[in-house]
């Protein structure tokens, strides 16, 4: 399954709305201007995710994971290189991290940031589809990329797709890049793409 140009553009536009909300929430919370941009979106079969992410992030990643359920269901992840995660929390809180593996306080801040970003993304999908979406409480981890993906492969259906979204945080003249990965069942993805087509027609 691939995104056609129209779907790609519509998805980027929609995600930008979600990221805009997340940026506004983070700005309000930290009392500084935080911008969140979506430069790229790609879709991969979940079995190829390892390969796709391997090109983007190093061996170890800091991740925030949330399960969402409802008519559109799946897993949502925010992935950042651990050093980028430490940098981001420092930029947001002004508190330098105690270790490069994210100390407990930095992990907590990173969880809150992931929670805000993922809720905004998935929430936007829910709004577009006009369906309620529930979220689990997020969990945070600093581990290898493949153990994050293996955990995802072990649970749920095998035939699933992943939206890999580049997330660019801009604050204090610095830029930190991370990735939002949304893993969807075939059915959920199809529902989402249909909704995108309808939404695009209404916009046009």
């Amino acid at each position: 399954m691939e995104l056609n140009t129209v779907q790609h553009d519509a998805l980027v536009e929609l995600l930008n709305i979600g990221f805009g909300r997340a940026g506004a929430s983070l700005s309000k919370l930290t009392q500084q201007r935080v911008l969140l941009e979506v430069p790229q979106v790609a879709i991969h079969p979940v079995t190829h995710l390892n390969q796709a992410l391997g090109r983007l992030v190093d061996e170890r990643v800091a991740s925030v994971h949330q399960v969402f359920s409802g008519p559109v269901a799946g897993d949502a992840l925010l992935l950042l290189d651990p050093i980028a995660a430490a940098t981001l929390t420092e930029l947001l809180t002004d508190v330098p991290p105690l270790s490069m593996d994210l100390d407990p306080s930095a992990r907590e801040v990173f969880t809150e940031v992931g929670n805000i970003v993922l809720n905004a993304c998935i929430g936007t999908f829910g709004n577009m589809l006009g369906v309620p979406v529930s979220f689990s409480v997020p969990d945070v981890d600093v581990t290898s990329v493949h153990s994050v993906i293996d955990r995802m492969l072990d649970s749920g259906e095998a035939f699933r797709y992943a939206l890999v979204i580049t997330a660019g945080f801009r604050l204090r003249d610095s830029a930190v890049t991370g990735y939002v990965v949304i893993v969807l069942t075939v059915q959920s993805l199809k529902r989402l793409l249909d909704a995108l087509d309808r939404w695009q027609q209404i916009q046009a």
Partner: peptide
């Protein structure tokens, strides 16, 4: 209010 809509929230001590 978000929780009543299904959203979970984490509040860190630092923030």
């Amino acid at each position: 209010h978000n929780a009543l809509k299904g959203h979970a929230t984490v509040l860190s001590h630092t923030l």
